[in-house]
Amino acid sequence: MPPAPEHTHHIKIRSTQLEMNPNPAASARQGEDNVEGKLRAAEEQLQQLEQQREELERQKREVESLNVRKREFIGAQAELTDKMSATVTRIDREVIDMKQEIEELEQCRACLASHLGKLEKINPDSWNRDSLATNIERAMTVAEHADDEFSQAADYFSRTRSANIFNGAKARRILSGDFGRQFRNGLAFNLPVIILGGIALIAYLVK
């Protein structure tokens, strides 16, 4: 048998594969570029972190300032609440007292106005001699009653804020007791004599 033919395979190797470092300067420059890129990226990251830190510190200061203002408000709120609550309570009491006093003043006014009307209707000049004693007694009764009411009102309101309404008038009676009654009776009986005596005296002086 003839021998088998031999097959030869030629392996082609690129020159670039055989040259491990064809340009050292370019490789070094490429490495420097990589380092610089990493440094720039790190610096940018540090700058971002610094900005974040500053932002967090700013927010922290803002929160602390707000907390300070909040505490100030809470203190002012408590103080104002206590002060205004006490004042409102006093005003409520004052209003109640004033309303009660106004009602009492209205009643007092009605009473005094009634007595005033009665006093103003009395006209001593219209009294005749026959009914003089009766008219005087009746008039003095009206006056005494009015004076008694006025004195009681002045005494009562002297202890209130309306004391100046009565101009410092003291509780007193114009005529009261046995002396007043005797004086009125004596005046009633002696008034005609006094009047006649006065007329006679005037006539004597005119002559």
Rank of each mutant, 00 (worst) to 15 (best):
G197V: 05
L201F: 15
N23S: 10
D92Q: 15
T160P: 04
S85F: 06
R71V: 12
Q100V: 03
S85T: 15
E137H: 11
A153C: 09
F73A: 13
A154M: 03
S151C: 14
A113G: 01
E106S: 13
Q182P: 00
L191G: 02
L196W: 08
I194L: 13
E19W: 01
V206N: 13
K70L: 12
I96S: 05
N23F: 10
K118N: 07
F179R: 07
A76W: 05
E94A: 15
Q17I: 05
E137F: 12
V63N: 09
V35P: 00
Q182N: 12
V35A: 13
L56M: 15
H145P: 00
D147G: 15
T134G: 05
E101G: 03
F73V: 07
N164A: 11
R172W: 01
L18A: 07
G177H: 09
E106V: 09
F157C: 02
E106Q: 13
V63K: 11
F166R: 01
R14L: 04
L196A: 14
N123L: 10
S114V: 03
T134L: 08
I91D: 00
T141Q: 12
I122D: 02
M84V: 14
S131A: 11
P2A: 12
K12Y: 09
A110V: 06
A203E: 11
A110F: 05
R71G: 01
T87Q: 13
A154F: 03
R69M: 14
R40W: 05
A188D: 02
R129A: 09
P2I: 10
D92N: 15
I195A: 07
F73I: 07
G180F: 05
N185L: 13
A188S: 15
Q51C: 08
A25D: 06
I194G: 00
E54N: 08
H7E: 06
P3T: 07
Y204C: 00
H7P: 00
L56C: 08
G168H: 05
R71F: 08
I102M: 03
K70Q: 08
N164M: 07
V88R: 03
I136H: 01
Q107Y: 02
